[in-house]
């Protein structure tokens, strides 16, 4: 059994009367691609927020690589090797593609109280940035302003930036959102490559992608994890089928 990289223990979060996370526990061993699915409003975004530090849980603990990160600020989690991509594209639109990734490299190359030497001329930032771009298939777009990229390329850049932080684990928040079938297929191929190297927590609506990629799947409904297991187990789980009532075909279609 591989070592546990991410361990969520009994995390709860309430917003007023709404329970967004209820006693969520989850274990992701190193090397696994773990997917989280669930209907809209199941609390997926709240869970990601707690993992990245933008939301503090009311109860429970989050451990990452044997450190308790429950109360750690966002930037320190990134330093520990927890990288995320955003569901809604969140980039530096007024900079070039390479500048975006170089910033991600810079974030993990010591402090940035360096006021004098031009950052754009430092190979120690540019070379790893170019490598991350090549990895995610954007090498030819390095000097294009981010605002001029297509939606699919924005999603690729999201991943390139996460990779550039040299993470131990990727948190991918709906990387396929808004993608056409062709772009999705390309991204699935990329993720299949990445899962060989990285532990990945994938939050995704695209069931086809999830069942194609995931080693294990957790199903979140009304803030609770109702099932965790291999794709085959999830497919036949009666509780999961009930949760997806009305859209049960979604799960069944991939049997």
């Amino acid at each position: 059994m591989a070592e546990t990289l991410l361990h969520i223990e009994g995390v709860s979060k309430r917003f007023g009367g709404v329970t967004a996370s209820e006693n969520v526990s989850l274990v992701v061993p190193a090397g696994e691609l773990h997917a989280i699915i669930g209907p809209n409003g199941a609390g997926k975004t709240t869970l990601i927020g707690q993992l990245t530090g933008e939301i503090t849980p009311d109860a429970g603990h989050i451990r990452f690589a044997d450190a308790d990160i429950t109360a750690l600020p966002t930037y320190q989690r990134s330093t520990l090797g927890l990288a995320r991509s955003f569901q809604i594209t969140s980039l530096f639109l007024d900079m070039s593609v390479l500048d975006n990734v170089a910033l991600a490299v810079q974030a993990h190359d010591g402090h940035s109280f360096r006021f004098w030497r031009p950052a754009r001329k430092q190979e120690s930032l540019r070379a790893p940035a170019r490598a991350a771009l090549a990895r995610s298939g954007l090498a030819s777009r390095a000097d294009v302003p981010v605002a001029d990229l297509s939606h699919g390329e924005h999603r690729q850049l999201e991943i390139a930036m996460a990779l550039a932080t040299r993470p131990r684990m990727l948190l991918l928040d709906e990387p396929m959102a808004g993608m056409g079938p062709e772009e999705s297929a390309r991204l699935v191929a990329l993720l299949r490559e990445l899962k060989k190297e990285y532990t990945i927590l994938l939050i995704e609506h695209d069931m086809e992608a999830v069942f194609a990629l995931a080693d294990r799947i957790s199903v979140l409904v009304y803030g609770r994890v109702i099932a965790t297991g291999k794709p085959d187990e999830i497919r036949v789980n009666p509780e999961v089928r009930r949760a997806y009532l009305g859209e049960k075909d979604v799960v069944a279609r991939h049997v």
């Binding site: 990245t52 966002t74 930037y75 969140s90 980039l91 530096f92 974030a107």
Partner: peptide, 17 residues
């Protein structure tokens, strides 16, 4: 670069560390 990145998208800056 940090200053300009923070103007552009502070949340992302914190997310990348």
């Amino acid at each position: 670069m940090v200053i300009q990145g923070s103007r552009s998208n502070d949340r992302r800056m914190r997310a990348i560390g």
